[in-house]
Amino acid sequence: MEQIPFWASKSFWKKMAIWVTAGSFLLLIILTFDTMSKVTAGTKRVPDYSVINKQIDYRYDESKHHSMPVIGGDAPLFGKILSEQEAEQLVTLGKKTIQAKNCMNCHTLLGNGAYFAPDLTKAWLDPAWGPESVRPMLMKMFLMDPEGNARTYGSGRKMPNLGITEQEAEGIIAFLKWMSSINTNGFPYNFKTAGGQ
C-alpha cells in the first residue's frame, strides 16, 4: 500500500478542523463585540427607550433604497413625557409580559416566532389603529379584550384573552412603540404607515 498523501491524512484534517473552527469562532466573537456596541439601546440603529416620548414613522429612504424609521417631535405616550429610566421600566414590563404570555408562539417579532398571527415589528405604526390620537387607547382596549375587539378580517381567527392587566397593556404598547423605532434594514418591506406614504 502506498503512502497516504499529507492532504488526505488524518492528522492534516484534524488540524484543519481545529483551525477552521477556531478561526470562524474568533471572527464571530469579534463581530459579536462590534454588533453589541451597535445594537445597545441608545445607538443609531436601536434608539433609547425614551424614544417612546417621540413621534415615530417608517418611510422610504431614497439613498438606502429601503424604508427607515424616522423619529420626529414630541408625542408622549399616554399623555406624559417619561424620563429615560421610567421609559426603560415601562418597556421592560412590556417585554416581560410578552414573554410571560408567550406571544411569540402566535406572532413574529422582528420576523421571528410563529406564523399564526400578524408580525408585530411595526405594529405600533399599523394603519388599522388609526391616527396617533386614538392609537394607544384602541391598542389598550384590544390587548385587554382581544376577543371583544376582534377584527379577524373574515378569517374567524381571534386572539384569546390572556389576562393582560391595564399596566401590562401599557408596558406592551410602550415596547411595541420602541420596537418600531429599530432600524431593521428595511424589514418589513413596503409597510405603509398611517402617517407616511
Partner: peptide, 23 residues
C-alpha cells in the same frame, strides 16, 4: 467538522439581516 463549522458558524449571519444588527 471543517466543512460544517467553516460554513455554519458564520452562516449564523442569515438570521441577522432584519433584527437591528448592522448591514
Amino acid at each position: 467538522v471543517a466543512l460544517m463549522f467553516g460554513s455554519g458558524i458564520l452562516g449564523l449571519g442569515h438570521h441577522y439581516f432584519w433584527i437591528g444588527s448592522p448591514e
